[in-house]
Nucleic acid binder design. Sequence first.
DNA 1: CATGAATGAGTTTTCATTCAT
DNA 2: CATGAATGAAAACTCATTCAT
Lengths: 213, 213, 213, 213
Amino acid sequence: MGIQERKKREKERRRQQIIIAAKKVFSSKGFNKTTMEDIAKKAELSPGTLYLYFRNKDELFTSLSMRILQYLLIRINDIDLKAELTSKQLMKALKDAFLDVYKFDPLILVNMFHLQSSETLSHLSPELLSDIHELSNNALNSIARIFDKGIQNGEFIDRAPLTMAHIIWGMFSGIVLWEENKKTTQKKGEHLKQILETAFLIFSRGIEKKPQI
Amino acid sequence: MGIQERKKREKERRRQQIIIAAKKVFSSKGFNKTTMEDIAKKAELSPGTLYLYFRNKDELFTSLSMRILQYLLIRINDIDLKAELTSKQLMKALKDAFLDVYKFDPLILVNMFHLQSSETLSHLSPELLSDIHELSNNALNSIARIFDKGIQNGEFIDRAPLTMAHIIWGMFSGIVLWEENKKTTQKKGEHLKQILETAFLIFSRGIEKKPQI
Amino acid sequence: MGIQERKKREKERRRQQIIIAAKKVFSSKGFNKTTMEDIAKKAELSPGTLYLYFRNKDELFTSLSMRILQYLLIRINDIDLKAELTSKQLMKALKDAFLDVYKFDPLILVNMFHLQSSETLSHLSPELLSDIHELSNNALNSIARIFDKGIQNGEFIDRAPLTMAHIIWGMFSGIVLWEENKKTTQKKGEHLKQILETAFLIFSRGIEKKPQI
Amino acid sequence: MGIQERKKREKERRRQQIIIAAKKVFSSKGFNKTTMEDIAKKAELSPGTLYLYFRNKDELFTSLSMRILQYLLIRINDIDLKAELTSKQLMKALKDAFLDVYKFDPLILVNMFHLQSSETLSHLSPELLSDIHELSNNALNSIARIFDKGIQNGEFIDRAPLTMAHIIWGMFSGIVLWEENKKTTQKKGEHLKQILETAFLIFSRGIEKKPQI
DNA sequence: CATGAATGAGTTTTCATTCAT
DNA sequence: CATGAATGAAAACTCATTCAT
């Protein structure tokens, strides 16, 4: 059984290797221009091997997107709700989590939006599909719990916490996408971190009953 | 010259026809999976004809994005700053403008984010490229002017108005993207209008010095 | 409408061109080793063009098989039942038809047996599938009618005419396959025409109530 | 040497295991679409193991065909020519032998006809090739001897007995192939046993000088 | 002996684009 | 202007076979 487990771990490691290679190619070539052969070369594997770990190209790219969701989920869950953090402190922690997600991989967010076509979806295995749903729902629910705490406290305005979660995630990813976009099209772009800081400030003030500053 | 003008108008109309067809196909198949033939079929034209109106596929898709920016710009510019509107009323008008943009075309927004892949942009003609930049800058500047008024008034917190414009646009498009995404992947999705209303509420409270409610 | 019709005819002609090229390649390289590119080259077309006329490789090869069934059907239907032919003469005509089918294309018969796997079938369009069924059923029914005449006459033994049709077709194709097989494996093989003559003699005697010779 | 023999027996048993698995996969997927991995999976072995027992794919498939020839040969040779059987009785025995071959393995017959593609045969080892030839020649010669007896008796018409053997084998295998084919493509098909009975009746009458019934 | 991950050449298939009509 | 058949380069994907463990 030790052997079986080790093999499983190794298989998973290989998958991650490929995903990392794919991410690198994707970052430099863009989604459309990235071929399976490019990825194979970067991963120092043969094209055929990729298909031992991913059913098809769409599934490989989808797995890429899942990594960022997984990372977000981990970071969110790290924000310990049990500890005696004030809502203010929780919001700060949430902001940091999001900024880390961005640092983790600015371009992978872009990739996530390729998931939305039903054409792509139809190429995915049902398991992968439900994994994605579970992941994103978990992440949003975790965020919602943070807001809920503030609402219970009487510190936040009384709106559906899940809706708030959707808004903060939408705001975050929208800003990142838009600014990455600007960066490539106009070769400038405000300093993104600065924009995100302001965005989170506005959001925080927006949900607090008695915002200061 | 009357003839020339009519011809020009007709040419423009045909372009719009194609853009509309492209948008429809794109929304059901996704950017990557949409082929020129798909679009030609939907527009009831031959593939070759598409190339009489658009230099190549990338240019066609870019034109798609420009429509929404154009529409947004028109709606924003309709908000008359000279009139005796309070900042509150201006924010309300801004919200309505965004909601109209969404109603105008929920799916085309998604398309806009495909522009950012640098490989697409490198195929565009310089004119088209600068058109896009001008459009989006104009729109953002118009929004920024609204915020600026509120800041001058002392009603809004004192942050760079252009940054605020970026944030509201990012938030808006991010939420729309995310929810449209949910709709296709999970076949459900909160009622988007509701989410946007809450989002604008939070944003408004977030930038007001003394938020009520 | 004249134009439309001409185009349709030309399209059909092109299809036939491709089928003929495919047949040639198939005959010299064997089914498994024949690639789409081989066929394209032989037809002096590009690989992509093949896919304008056939959905995929299986469909192209299936169309190949249909030609022989079509040819058989034509030849069978040429045998005029109304004419004052004796059963004996009808059998002679039938034999000649089969020998012509063989001369038309000895190897294509082999190809027909690739149709039988459900895996292949699943790649075919439903229309093509039903075309095949219709064709083969028509051919068998036509043959059966010939036998029926002899049975009504009292010249043939009284067995289900359709069963007889199945038997003569099975006998014919089985012998052809087997001998073609021998030819390639053993580089010899009885003279096929001779064997078929004897086979038809035996069959004829077998169904006649009072066989001579 | 007892050990050696046991090892040899075990090796042979394993070969048979693989052949049986191959046959199952082959019958559902067809010759061309069957992969070595499919077979390995069905045999609950790894792909590599297959190559310990068979030089390559073609050799594996050829071995499949040999089984049925071996079985046919055994059954034919069981028909004891020395015993005081009339030609009629011999024909009956022959028919039973064929029906048994069919019952033994209806699908493997199909496989035999894939041997004929010359590209497959060129990959075979010379030993295997001559084994096949020997087997099939033996079987046909045995059948021919039965016919010869009837000819000598004056009961059968005077045609080359080997030709007759080819015809009966072709007829038999052709009918089986055709009907199996029908079964998979049309999901119906006359009852095969009935057709074969009629076929043998017709054949018997066809070769008898004075057919009854 | 057995494994099964890896290979990589070979194949099918796609699709933006062109061009003769 | 409009067509749509044809292109062909480029891409995705397959699978018989090998080999280190």
